[in-house]
């Protein structure tokens, strides 16, 4: 880039994504983030526990509608996310690069993220079949077990890869009908905020995914302790912090899944068992007779 450019860049304000809106943090705080590509500093919101609380309210409000949406519709919407991301691949690659990822790797990460979305878009109407069972009970009953979403999932996203890690953790949760409040990578937050814009443009109902930027140390205890959060995804959280979070999670029996040192670029890091992680199995009995 040269100083000969006639026009001044319009810098983006990186905000939170809560309930389908892009508010600034209610706390007014920010974290300054030095772009890795030498283009200066950007400011990212430092979300507060109240932002988290608001996000949980939004996520709870979205559970009924999203979990009742047809599998076909959820698949269409997640596919639409992939389309939107593909269309903005250059922007995301540039942001990842700004976060210090080499250019080629950044482009590859965006492609992998798109492909992961496509992979999971195809799971929405299949995981139920894979995870369900019809149970041949001895009595005269029709008996079957099928997965249902756990509810509101709070996620501490992987530190890296910023975008692919985010997609790999959030998407299986929403494929399964959950809603999510996610705390983006502290070191790679930019693509998370931009991803919210992609979600917003993809017919994902407001509140289904809520993205916060901020500090793990500050927010994790509130995520683990919130009584209206049903599950906790902890990615690359230190042993001590994870232990404390799991203890706090016991208060309302949050389902806790830890993801440590996962190679999110590997094909094996996507599977219906990641969807299953935030599902409850419901068994129904019904008499069979004339």
């Amino acid at each position: 880039m040269s100083g000969e450019r006639a026009r001044l860049d319009v810098a983006k304000t990186y905000k939170l994504y809560i309930g389908g809106k892009f508010p600034r943090t209610e706390s007014g705080r920010y974290a300054s983030f030095e772009r890795g590509d030498g283009a200066g500093a950007v400011n990212v919101c430092r979300a507060s526990r109240k932002d988290f609380r608001n996000a949980v309210v939004a996520a709870r409000g979205a559970v009924a509608g999203w979990s009742a949406a047809s599998a076909y519709l959820r698949g269409q919407i997640i596919y639409r996310i992939a389309e939107m991301l593909e269309g903005r691949a250059a922007q995301f690659a540039s942001e990842l690069h700004a976060e210090g990822v080499a250019e080629a790797a950044a482009a590859a990460q965006v492609e992998a993220s798109v492909d992961r979305l496509i992979h999971y878009a195809g799971w929405t109407d299949k995981y139920t079949q894979v995870l369900s069972s019809v149970n041949p009970v001895a009595s005269s009953h029709f008996n079957f077990s099928l997965p249902e979403p756990t509810g509101v999932v709070a996620a501490v996203l992987p530190e890296r890869p910023g975008l692919l890690g985010l997609v790999s953790v959030i998407v299986p949760a929403i494929v399964g009908g959950n809603t999510v409040v996610a705390l983006a990578s502290e070191s790679h937050p930019l693509s998370a905020v931009s991803f919210a814009e992609v979600l917003h443009a993809s017919d994902v109902p407001g509140g289904v995914v809520n993205l916060l930027t901020g500090q793990r140390d500050e927010l994790l205890s509130h995520m683990a302790g919130h009584m209206d959060v049903n599950a906790l995804a902890l990615c690359d959280v230190s042993a001590d912090a994870a232990t404390a979070a799991e203890k706090a999670a016991a208060e309302n029996f949050k389902r806790v899944r830890r993801f440590d040192d996962v190679d999110w670029s590997a094909d094996a890091s996507a599977s219906p068992w990641h969807i299953e992680a935030f599902q409850e199995i419901k068994t129904t009995w019904h008499p069979v007779a004339n």
Partner: peptide
């Protein structure tokens, strides 16, 4: 986790049981 329709307290080894 277990819902009985027109019956109650039925159990079977093949039938998953557990709570939300």
């Amino acid at each position: 986790g277990v819902v009985w329709a027109n019956t109650f307290n039925k159990f079977d080894p093949t039938s998953p049981f557990g709570g939300y």
